[in-house]
């Protein structure tokens, strides 16, 4: 782990359940700014739920989360999670961005509009500036010439690139990637992973990436978390985890996915 004075993301004893199903059972995690973290583990182990809780799409029952020292979730006297005042909550949430498995582009807007809408409406950027910046990001993901197309006219890989550009345009300090290649045809996956790798190398954002691509996790990320049964079973440098994991469960999991 990096030695920084205060970790950018601090997660303490985070719990989340859906009905009787306990999905997160006490997550503790510190992430320094600019780190690129891959999250691996069997399905249903709570990886995506952690991302969704950080994005405030799900509310935890228990636990604390600090972003840059400010509480996103904190505990009240009775051990329940409470939110900060609305304005503060919203401001904090705006520092976090997310890319989804199923893209979730707005089908009634052009590609350009998809990327500019939030900067204009949420951040109050002028349409002209938003457009100039959007073109920069679209260029970065290699889709500048598709600016006037509608999402329906794009391939899955192109849709996901637009979704990444859309999230980048909000200048998030933290970016969450939730299995963003799972819905893509195999031949389109490589390009998206290369793009992630490029973004990670810049160290401009703290990135959490839930992925099934072990090679990517091993070669591109600074750190790997192995989730199992709602807890972080393994946390360390990619090479350490892939070469000598400390738990049998990790060994079994890696064996099963690497054999395929």
């Amino acid at each position: 782990m990096t030695d920084s004075p205060e970790p950018f993301i601090q997660i303490r004893d985070l719990h989340k359940s859906f009905g009787d199903l306990k999905v997160l059972q006490g997550i503790n995690l510190d992430i320094p700014a600019g780190e690129m973290v891959s999250v691996i583990g069997p399905s249903g182990s709570g990886k995506s739920t952690l991302l969704r809780v950080l994005m405030t799409l799900e509310r935890p029952e228990q636990g604390e989360v600090l972003i840059g020292g400010e509480p996103l979730y904190s505990m009240d006297g009775e051990g329940h999670t409470t939110l900060p005042p609305k304005a503060q909550f919203r401001a904090l949430r705006n520092r976090i961005g997310m890319v989804f498995q199923h893209f979730n582009l707005f089908p009634h807007m052009t590609v350009l509009r998809n990327v500019t809408e939030a900067p204009v409406r949420v951040l109050g950027v002028s349409r002209k500036d938003a457009k100039a910046e959007a073109m920069k990001y679209l260029d970065e993901v290699g889709l500048a010439e598709k600016a006037d197309a509608y999402p329906a006219q794009l391939s899955g890989g192109q849709k996901q690139r637009v979704a990444i550009a859309r999230a980048l345009a909000m200048h998030p300090e933290i970016m969450l990637f939730d299995e963003i290649t799972s819905a893509l045809d195999p031949e389109l996956v490589g390009g998206i992973l290369a793009l992630l790798d490029r973004l990670g190398k810049r160290k401009e954002m703290t990135m959490l990436i839930v992925t099934h691509h072990m090679n990517f996790a091993r070669q591109s990320s600074d750190r790997v978390l192995f989730f199992d049964g709602g807890v972080i079973l393994e946390d360390g440098k990619p090479d350490d985890i892939f070469t000598h994991p400390t738990h049998d469960r990790t060994r079994e999991f890696l064996k099963s996915v690497l054999e395929v």
């Binding site: 994005m55 405030t56 799409l57 919203r90 949430r93 705006n94 976090i96 961005g97 997310m98 989804f100 199923h102 979730n104 582009l105 707005f106 089908p107 009634h108 809408e117 939030a118 409406r121 949420v122 951040l123 979704a163 859309r166 999230a167 909000m170």
Partner: peptide
């Protein structure tokens, strides 16, 4: 689709903006 609402939340739209700019037009 529920994903539209989630994407809007992730981009920081208020519930009102989400309704009028994302959900209703679709």
């Amino acid at each position: 689709s529920h994903g539209q609402k989630e994407a809007a939340t992730a981009l920081g739209f208020t519930p009102r903006q989400t309704l009028w700019r994302i959900l209703l037009p679709q």
